[in-house]
Simulated assay, not measured.
Amino acid sequence: MQGKSKNACEEHMDMAFDDFLIENEAFPNLCEAADEKCSYCDKKAKYVLKEASEI
């Protein structure tokens, strides 16, 4: 995983959101994923959670 972003499939969206908030103490921007894999499993990620500075 690069930077402070989290990739998440639909199954792990809640976990990624919680982890992002804890690790960054900031609300993430939600973007659609292109060809990334989920940060928690090998499924295709549907979303990428990023800090505002990463957009």
Rank of each mutant, 00 (worst) to 15 (best):
M1R: 13
H12K: 03
A45T: 13
G3N: 11
A45G: 07
I22M: 08
M15D: 13
A33Q: 05
A52V: 06
E11S: 07
E51P: 00
D14K: 08
S5L: 14
F17W: 11
N24R: 02
C31H: 15
E10Y: 01
E54A: 03
Y40I: 07
I22G: 05
A45V: 09
E36I: 12
E51F: 02
A26I: 09
D42Q: 08
A26W: 07
V48A: 05
N7H: 14
A8F: 00
Q2Y: 14
A45N: 12
K6H: 10
A45E: 04
E25N: 09
K50A: 02
K50G: 00
F17P: 00
K46M: 15
I55A: 06
E25Y: 11
P28E: 04
N7M: 08
N7T: 13
E23G: 04
L21A: 13
E25T: 12
A34Q: 10
E23R: 10
K43N: 15
C41R: 01
C9L: 10
A16P: 03
A16S: 05
F27E: 10
A33N: 03
E32P: 01
K43M: 13
I22N: 10
E36Q: 15
S53M: 06
P28A: 08
D35S: 01
A26E: 10
D14T: 04
L21G: 10
D18C: 13
P28H: 06
Y47D: 00
A33L: 04
F20R: 02
E36M: 12
K4E: 11
S39F: 14
D35L: 01
A45Y: 06
